[in-house]
């Protein structure tokens, strides 16, 4: 029965993959995907409800509602799933059995984070698919209606009307919008993981994560006050600086509202925003590792 075990590797993507897919499986078997049904109901319901409105408004509401719900759902999922994943392993002593194997702590943490990021990606893709389907169906209906109503109009006018419909339906600028939603959720998964490495309970982690979410949306006001104006009051300046340094500027990732309102985003700017988001995700994960590496279990 004695065979030589495989040579130990200092860093193994295979082990990380095993931990990540296990985390994903855990979340899937906790039936977290059921929220997708809620999402489907929401967009179908809103589509049906908005039938009598002019088509601009129908598209507007469908996009707002779908993207708003996607944003909320992915963020909630990121916070709740990550907040429970580490404390649960500690409480059940499963963590001991894993770390008693030749698994470096960085791999364990990375695996858990990737598992959540995977879950978020899957959810985002599924919700986007439902959203795209709803949008395409609505577009199809509106086009058919326009053709019917303008059957006797000159060809040029009909074409212009149809162009108008297409412009209000799916636009490629929605893609960066959806990506920014995912990015924000990824930042929160990483941030929540960091919180849970030193938090004493999941509730604490969740509450702090929520607070950061709200402060993050007004951080830019503090930052602009701090960097932009001279303050005689040192206390106030220190306070503003702390807010600006400690919290992420989440408003930068709120591209969706502008995109739905028809303001296209430039590629270069989008790439920079994604870069910043990735930096946040990485730094939070790194700090989580630093704390976890020295944690006494």
């Amino acid at each position: 029965m004695i065979t030589t075990p495989p040579k130990h590797r200092a860093f193994s993507p295979w082990r990380i993959h095993a931990i990540a897919s296990n985390a994903l499986l855990e979340l899937a078997r906790l039936k977290v995907f059921y929220f997708l049904l809620l999402f489907a109901l929401l967009i179908i319901g809103s589509s049906a409800f908005m039938m009598e409105f002019p088509f601009h408004e129908q598209f507007q509401v469908l996009k707002d509602l779908s993207l708003g719900a996607m944003s909320i759902f992915t963020w909630l999922l990121a916070v709740l799933a990550t907040a429970m994943i580490l404390p649960k392993d500690i409480e059940d002593r499963t963590l001991y059995t894993i770390l008693a194997k030749p698994v470096p702590r960085v791999e364990y943490l990375l695996g858990k984070l990737l598992g959540v990021l995977w879950l978020l990606l899957l959810s985002t893709v599924l919700m986007s698919a439902m959203f795209a389907l709803a949008l395409a169906t609505k577009e199809h209906l509106v086009v058919a209606q326009t053709m019917r109503e303008m059957a006797h109009a000159p060809q040029e006018q009909l074409q212009a009307a149809l162009r108008d419909v297409h412009e209000h339906a799916f636009t490629s600028s929605l893609v960066p919008g959806v990506l920014s939603i995912y990015l924000k959720a990824a930042i929160f998964a990483s941030l929540t993981l960091l919180l849970s490495t030193f938090a004493t309970s999941s509730i604490f982690t969740i509450i702090v994560s929520f607070v950061i979410y709200f402060i993050g949306h007004v951080q830019h006001i503090a930052r602009e006050e701090w960097l932009g104006s001279a303050h005689p009051m040192a206390m106030k300046k220190v306070f503003l600086a702390l807010v600006a340094l400690l919290f992420p500027d989440l408003q930068l990732f709120n591209l969706v509202d502008d995109i739905v309102a028809g303001n296209a985003i430039q590629m270069a700017l989008f790439v920079k925003t994604v870069g910043l988001g990735c930096a946040y995700t990485f730094v939070y994960a790194f700090v989580a590792y630093v704390i976890f590496a020295y944690k006494e279990l």
Binding site: W14, I19, D92
Partner: peptide
């Protein structure tokens, strides 16, 4: 190999999946 006191492991895994998981993280 370590067996902690009152371990829970992952309730959502089957016996076989449990061993697969621990085997995988051992390479």
């Amino acid at each position: 190999g370590f067996l902690p006191e009152n371990p829970y492991f992952y309730k959502f895994l089957t016996g076989e999946e449990t061993l697969f998981f621990y085997g995988k993280i051992c390479g």
